[in-house]
Every structure is written in structure tokens, then in C-alpha cells.
């Protein structure tokens, strides 16, 4: 295990150096008069738009809409993936029964479901939750199955020596044994959910960060587009950070 090392001044300098360089180049292009407002905003304009959106509440509304959609779709996916993943891991017959369908559905990307989702659920919340669900369910499910499969067989042998009943086997060996892999699946799932919500909102929505992107494009407002992109990136990173921290808290034994 890595020792928690204190990060020095140089580390933080290096960490922020590249974003700073990009900002400086951006600004100098602006000062040289090379930026056209309908293709690339100045930093000043971008900042102004951000403040404006923050003040009139659009920033919060759009993020709030997207985040809450992601959470709904994700939790639906989590519950489904864990149940199906465990059933498949515990019952080989159920595995055979579902395998072909899962193998065929797995390669279909979430965006390929958008047309059907709109036909089925309209352009409201449900269709987006459905897309997010599709995006999140596979990585969680696959990593759950994989996690159970890769538990060392010697622990099951140990369990036979101590005559451990099945319920306790699930609680004390299968779930904790698969947990690191499940956590990886959850991280990938949340990442996918976030990508899916942006894609879904770009196609049919009136709110959300994805909507900001498509709306900014139709208004020829690259400042709105870039603000939307930054929100997607920053919130994606924050969610991933939270999950990494959660993993550390939950999996203390590695």
C-alpha cells in the first residue's frame, strides 16, 4: 500500500501549470485579435456568461436537472445490476439462460438507444433515465459477475471446513470478495451515466447540461457551449473523486 505522502509546493505547481498555460495562450490569442465571437469566446466573455448563468439561476437548474437524472438512472441500474449479477454468479443455469441476450445487448452503446427511448417514453425524464440506466447497468453488472468469479477458490474450501451455510457464505465471502470489482463497476457506471445524460439531453431536452450544449450551438454562442462542456468535465471529475474516496472508506483491507 502507498504511504500517504505529503505533496510539496512543486507538485501543486506542476499540477496547475498546464491549465494555466492554456489560459495564458487563450488570453494572448484574444489580445492579438484572433478570436471570433461566434467560434471561440474570449475568457472575459466566458467568465461573463458564467456569472450571468450563476446569477439568473440557470447554472444551478441545468446542473441540478442533469445530476438528479444521473442519480435516478444510476441507482436503478445499480440495484438491477447487483441483483442480476448475483443471480448469474450463484446460479450457473441462470447464467446460461441469460448469456446470449446479454452478450448481444452489451455492445449496443447508450446513444443507440436514444431513438427507441424517445419513441417509447417521449422526450421527458423517463427516456433520459432509461438511457442512463442502459449506460450504467452493464459495467456494474459485468464487474459484479467478474468480481464473484475471481474470488479465490481457497476461501470456499475454507468455508467447507467450517461448515459455513450458504447465506453466510454470501455475506462473508461472496459480497466482500467481489466488492473491489463492484466498486470499479460503479465508477465506470457513473462515468457512463454522465456521458449518457449529456448525449440524451443534447437530442431532446429543454434543461440540463446537454441542453446547454445544443442550445449554445443553435444560438451560435460558443461561450455557452464551452461553459456546458466545462460543467460536464468538472462534475464528472467530482463524482469520480467522491467514488474513489468511497472506495477507500469501504475497502479497508487491501
Amino acid at each position: 500500500m502507498n504511504k500517504p505522502q505529503k505533496k510539496g509546493v512543486f507538485y501543486w505547481f506542476l499540477y496547475f501549470a498546464l491549465p494555466l498555460i492554456i489560459l495564458i495562450i487563450w488570453e494572448s490569442f484574444d489580445r492579438a485579435g484572433k478570436l471570433k465571437p461566434y467560434t471561440m469566446p474570449s475568457l472575459e466573455k466566458l467568465f461573463g456568461t458564467t456569472v450571468e448563468y450563476a446569477k439568473n439561476g440557470q447554472l444551478l437548474t441545468n446542473i441540478g436537472v442533469s445530476v438528479s437524472l444521473v442519480l435516478e438512472g444510476f441507482f436503478l441500474a445499480l440495484v438491477t445490476a447487483l441483483i442480476i449479477g448475483m443471480l448469474i454468479s450463484l446460479f450457473p443455469k441462470f447464467d446460461t439462460f441469460t448469456d446470449l441476450i446479454i452478450q448481444i445487448l452489451k455492445p449496443i452503446p447508450p446513444i443507440a438507444w436514444i431513438p427507441l427511448a424517445i419513441l417509447w417514453f417521449g422526450i421527458g425524464q423517463e427516456s433520459k433515465i432509461f438511457i442512463i440506466f442502459i449506460g450504467a447497468v452493464f459495467p456494474i453488472f459485468l464487474n459484479t459477475v467478474d468480481g464473484v468469479k475471481t474470488i479465490d477458490k481457497k476461501y470456499f474450501e475454507l468455508a467447507t471446513v467450517y461448515e459455513i451455510p450458504k447465506s453466510e457464505l454470501i455475506k462473508n465471502i461472496i459480497i466482500p470478495g467481489a466488492l473491489p470489482s463492484i466498486m470499479t463497476g460503479i465508477r465506470l457506471g457513473v462515468g457512463n451515466a454522465w456521458v449518457s445524460v449529456v448525449a440524451a439531453e443534447m437530442i431532446g431536452a429543454t434543461k440540463g447540461v446537454g441542453y446547454m450544449l445544443s442550445n449554445g450551438r443553435s444560438l451560435s454562442r460558443p461561450d455557452i457551449v464551452i461553459l456546458g462542456m466545462l460543467l460536464v468535465g468538472i462534475f464528472g471529475k467530482i463524482m469520480d473523486d467522491i467514488l474513489r474516496l468511497l472506495r477507500k472508506k469501504v475497502i479497508t483491507w487491501l
Binding site: 481457497k154 476461501y155 475454507l158 471446513v161 461448515e163 462473508n172 465471502i173 466482500p176 475497502i251 487491501l254
Partner: peptide, 20 residues
């Protein structure tokens, strides 16, 4: 016919569950 508690077995690896 099967392992049991009355036949204690200590493996070469300690085989402790790492999460407990």
C-alpha cells in the same frame, strides 16, 4: 464424506479472510 469442524485443518497459507 465431507470436511467438518471436528477435523480442524490448517493450510499452508493462513487463509484468513482479508476483510475480517
Amino acid at each position: 464424506t465431507a470436511p467438518s469442524r471436528e477435523k480442524g485443518f490448517v493450510f499452508q497459507d493462513h487463509r484468513l479472510l482479508p476483510w475480517l
